[in-house]
């Protein structure tokens, strides 16, 4: 337990959890105040989920990876568990919105976006390090929420704007699944890049 506490504190997990919670709560609050529709706009939902994935992405590494690695721990298992817990947090937050007046729905779309964006963030952590791990997810999400992005019959557009495609859009689901698998695999086995102290 002590190890868990130290691990979470070294990666500033509490602060990230608070921001992820605040992001979802603020999106729901604003939607509940300004709209009569109980389902939060997909653009607002996606952006809120992206911020959740982004701040949890900051916890994927620590200030000194080089110092961490030689520790006698099975890091791949711990990294996979970390990622799974992050996924669990985001899914739980999305499901918790059902208790309030504004919901993140439909669930398959929310789950697809959570899984895909978290995978992309994990991939970012492997390539750019935890500090900028969120960059790819932010850029892709912001492209998806542009006014001229939206559900489209064109497969390329569906992939480019997968975060705002409707439930059951194959290209969007495949895109999210590929990002999730690639991100989870790369992060589990390689972790964040080592940096000098």
């Amino acid at each position: 337990m002590r190890w868990m506490t130290l691990y979470a504190r070294s990666r500033q997990v509490p602060r990230s959890l608070f921001v992820a919670l605040a992001s979802v709560a603020l999106a729901c609050l604003l939607w509940a105040v300004f709209s009569d529709d109980p389902t939060v706009s997909d653009r607002l939902m996606t952006t809120s989920v992206m911020l959740g994935a982004a701040v949890l992405g900051l916890t994927l590494g620590t200030v000194d990876e080089e110092l961490n690695r030689p520790a006698a721990h099975h890091w791949p298992r711990r990294r996979a568990l970390h990622l799974l817990l992050a996924l669990g947090v985001l899914v739980a937050l999305a499901l918790a919105t059902r208790l309030g007046p504004a919901h993140f729905e439909p669930f398959p779309v929310v789950l697809r976006n959570v899984v895909g964006l978290l995978g992309l963030t994990a991939l970012g952590a492997v390539v750019l390090g935890p500090d900028l791990s969120w960059l790819g997810a932010a850029v892709w999400t912001l492209i998806g929420v542009l006014p001229f992005s939206g559900p489209s019959p064109d497969v390329l557009t569906q992939a480019a704007t997968w975060t705002v495609q409707t439930s059951g859009t194959t290209a969007a689901t495949v895109c999210a699944a590929v990002l999730a698998v690639a991100g989870a695999t790369a992060y589990t086995f390689y972790g964040c890049p080592e940096r000098a102290a």
Binding site: Q12, R15, S16, V19, S23, R43, L44, T47, S48, M50, L51, A54, V55, L58, D131, W134, A138, L142, V145, L146
Partner: peptide, 18 residues
């Protein structure tokens, strides 16, 4: 603080565009 950056990105997107 690094966490400020993604928050700023999302707040700016929310205020100016979304």
């Amino acid at each position: 603080r690094l966490i400020v950056i993604p928050v700023l990105v999302v707040l700016t997107a929310g205020l100016t565009g979304i």
